[in-house]
């Protein structure tokens, strides 16, 4: 196993779920409860030193019980290594800890994940929609059950019928 994954497993034997290394990328899945402390350790531990946040993303797996997968990607400027940290949450309770207090850049990225997939971030300072309009009420566009053409809101635009 990758030394970083091993270290996480040692420090958080309960929180650590699995580590996958594929095409040179290391992805570590942790339990939702221990997400924040693992992230804190990744940032503060001088051996890991992940000071740079790359992106926050989410994947929807509708047929699985824990439907949403939230993904953070970190990089270490000094050590020059990467890690992808993942956690799962179910649709009925889709809330994970926010990491804004550790990486300030996570603010907008987590807002985007909330906007696009409806995953809530606990302790996020300003969890609002960011790309879609504030009053958008058709749900979350990047979920797999959201049709590509939208749910009909666009058909209600007045300018579409102006020509007739």
């Amino acid at each position: 196993m990758h030394p970083i994954a091993e270290r996480i497993q040692q420090k958080f034997p309960e929180g650590f779920l699995k580590a996958v290394e594929w095409r040179g990328d290391l992805a570590v899945t942790v339990a939702r409860q221990s997400l924040h402390e693992v992230a804190k350790c990744l940032h503060d531990d001088p051996d890991m030193d992940f000071d740079y946040i790359v992106h926050v993303s989410s994947v929807d797996w509708p047929e699985e019980e824990e439907r949403f997968e939230v993904v953070w990607e970190f990089y270490s400027i000094r050590k020059r290594h990467r890690i992808r940290l993942k956690t799962r949450c179910s649709e009925s309770d889709c809330e994970v800890d926010s990491l804004v207090d550790i990486w300030k850049g996570a603010d907008f990225m987590e807002r985007e994940v909330y906007d696009m997939m409806g995953i809530r971030f606990r302790n996020h300072p300003d969890l609002r929609r960011i790309l879609m309009p504030d009053d958008y009420n058709e749900g979350y566009p990047l979920r797999k059950d959201f049709p590509l053409q939208g749910k009909g809101w666009r058909d209600t635009f007045e300018f579409l019928n102006e020509r007739q």
């Binding site: 000071d51 740079y52 946040i53 790359v54 400027i77 990486w103 300030k104 850049g105 990225m109």
Partner: peptide, 8 residues
């Protein structure tokens, strides 16, 4: 420090 923390 801030620039790195913000992911710039």
């Amino acid at each position: 420090e801030d620039a790195v923390n913000f992911g710039l």
